[in-house]
Simulated assay, not measured.
Amino acid sequence: MPDDLLRHVIGPTPYSSVWLWAAIGLILLVCAWYIGVFVLTAPRRAIRELPVLGAARAELLRRRSARAVRTIGNRYRSGDLSAAPAGAAVSRELRAFLQSVTGVQAQYMQVEAIAASDAAAAAPILVELTDIQFNHHSALDAGTVSDATEELIRGWT
């Protein structure tokens, strides 16, 4: 074989680094998938007990609920809502927040039962919201009660 043909003979080509990064990306994607399935299917109590994830979830719930209550209060102040519907909306949002944070079925409980549960700190505000919602001659202001509700939600621990 002449020496001039040896320049056309080469060794095996190396693997491309794209395959390495594709494999790493797929492994990370599968790990994220399993974590997502765990978080979405775990009981809420189990998520609350996880240190970082439970705290992040609680903070997210506080912010979302406080923003919703503030929006309802602003709609009442602007005249879009009257006192009774504003009180009902704030009560509904507060009860949903209490159920998400404490696990107490606050959406379906009487105020007296809530006062005897883990959500007892919210009972005075729920009494005021009930008065606004069902007493058309109430002296309470729905805007003031919505501010107090927002403050309670933001300070909930």
Rank of each mutant, 00 (worst) to 15 (best):
A115G: 00
A139K: 15
A123I: 00
N74S: 07
A55Y: 00
W33R: 06
I72Q: 05
A83D: 08
A22F: 14
S78P: 01
I125N: 08
M1D: 15
S138N: 13
S146G: 13
T71E: 06
E128D: 15
S65Q: 04
G36F: 03
D118H: 04
P85F: 09
W33Q: 06
L26R: 07
E49S: 04
L60V: 06
G36D: 02
L28W: 06
F38E: 02
R154S: 12
D4M: 12
Y76M: 04
V52K: 01
L61K: 10
R62P: 03
P43E: 14
G36C: 01
S117Q: 00
W21P: 05
A139T: 13
R57P: 01
A119W: 03
R45N: 15
P12V: 15
Y108E: 10
R77S: 08
A22P: 14
Y15R: 12
V104G: 10
D80F: 05
I153R: 04
S146D: 09
L61S: 09
E49V: 04
H136F: 12
T157P: 07
Y34A: 01
Y15D: 13
G11N: 11
L40N: 13
T157Y: 09
L140M: 14
L29R: 05
E93A: 11
G25H: 08
G103A: 13
V39M: 04
L28I: 08
A22V: 15
I114M: 01
T157W: 07
R62I: 01
A66Y: 08
D131T: 14
T130L: 09
L126Y: 05
T102A: 07
V9F: 14
P43Y: 11
S100Q: 15
Q107D: 13
L98D: 04
R75C: 02
A22K: 13
Q107R: 13
F97S: 05
S138G: 11
A96G: 12
R67Q: 15
E112H: 01
S78M: 01
H137E: 09
D80L: 06
L129I: 03
G79Q: 04
L29C: 11
V18W: 15
S100Y: 11
Q133I: 03
L98S: 09
G54E: 00
E150C: 10
A139Q: 14
A88S: 10
L6W: 12
F97I: 06
E128H: 12
I153Q: 03
S100F: 14
V101G: 04
T41I: 10
P51V: 01
G87I: 02
R77I: 02
V69M: 11
G143M: 06
S65K: 06
M1V: 15
D131N: 12
G54F: 00
L94Q: 04
T157A: 10
T149N: 10
W156V: 02
V69E: 07
A119H: 03
L140W: 11
V111M: 00
